[in-house]
Nucleic acid binder design. Structure first.
Length: 234
DNA sequence: GCATTAACAGCCG
DNA sequence: CGGCTGTTAATGC
């Protein structure tokens, strides 16, 4: 397993920023440019930790490419996924606004490139841009819903239902506006996200496919009925 | 039992 | 060929 972290400080092009950040598309030109100049790109190898609980990660963070798991570890050592983050996801506003330490672990499930926005840039946008604040409110709202659903997740739902929830989150239309309903993701990666073995992920996918909720491809999943997938309870 | 790891043939890109 | 899938067998909590 490679244990490397590659180049940093590369600036992002306007096209790439628009592509990976839905919020940037609604900014005024001067706000957009301020955002762009406050963002640098950084790469992480597959399997590497991006940060641990308690780290001081000062930047607001976007996934430019790859796949990230946000998780916590309980006192007993059990790990629970808080959210899967695919390209286009942005997170960490809570810790940036409150200037506190990270309350979760972040792992790159595959080779991943992150976009890091300086805290000062984030706070400037927070202060100046109505569009940016609108985005944040919507994002907070969706994540709150996710975390409430999480409470019942572990004990009440079987593995197929947990898989369904985790998958549905990756297709949240608020967090990922305009995203395709097909995602390139292996069954092993889904297993890592949903907290189960590859074989269980395989069986869960087959079950959900049998119900017509999704379609299984080679290293890919296509969602057919997002609402029912998100509500699936076994 | 139910889930996990290990193993392997088969298929896809 | 390398990576992923689908399945079975052995093992563990």
């Amino acid at each position: 397993m490679p244990a490397r972290t590659r180049g940093e400080h590369a600036l992002i092009s306007p096209e790439d920023l628009r592509r990976i950040a839905a919020w940037s598309r609604d900014l005024k030109p001067e706000e957009f440019e301020e955002a762009r100049r406050g963002i640098s790109l950084k790469s992480y190898g597959k399997g590497n930790y991006i940060c641990h609980v308690g780290d001081r990660l000062e930047s607001w963070t976007g996934v430019a490419a790859g796949l990230v798991k946000m998780s916590t570890t309980s006192k007993e050592g059990k790990s629970a996924t808080l959210a899967g983050l695919r390209a286009g996801a942005w997170f960490g506003e809570g810790t940036v606004i409150k200037a506190e330490l990270r309350r979760y672990d972040l792992v790159a499930l595959r080779d991943t490139q992150l976009a890091l926005m300086r805290r000062s840039t984030f706070l400037w946008l927070f202060e100046h841009s109505a569009a940016f604040n609108r985005f944040l409110v919507h994002q907070f709202n969706e994540r709150l819903g996710q975390f409430i659903a999480l409470a019942e997740n572990e004990r009440m739902l079987d593995s197929t239902a947990r898989l369904a929830r985790n998958l549905a989150w990756l297709f949240n239309p608020i967090l990922y506006p305009g995203q395709s309903l097909t995602l390139t993701i292996s069954q092993e990666e889904l297993g890592l996200l949903a907290g189960m073995s590859r074989q269980m992920a395989n069986q869960g996918l087959a079950k959900l496919a049998g119900l017509g909720l999704l379609e299984v491809g080679h290293g890919a999943v296509t969602i057919l009925d997002l609402d029912r997938l998100a509500r699936y309870e076994g």
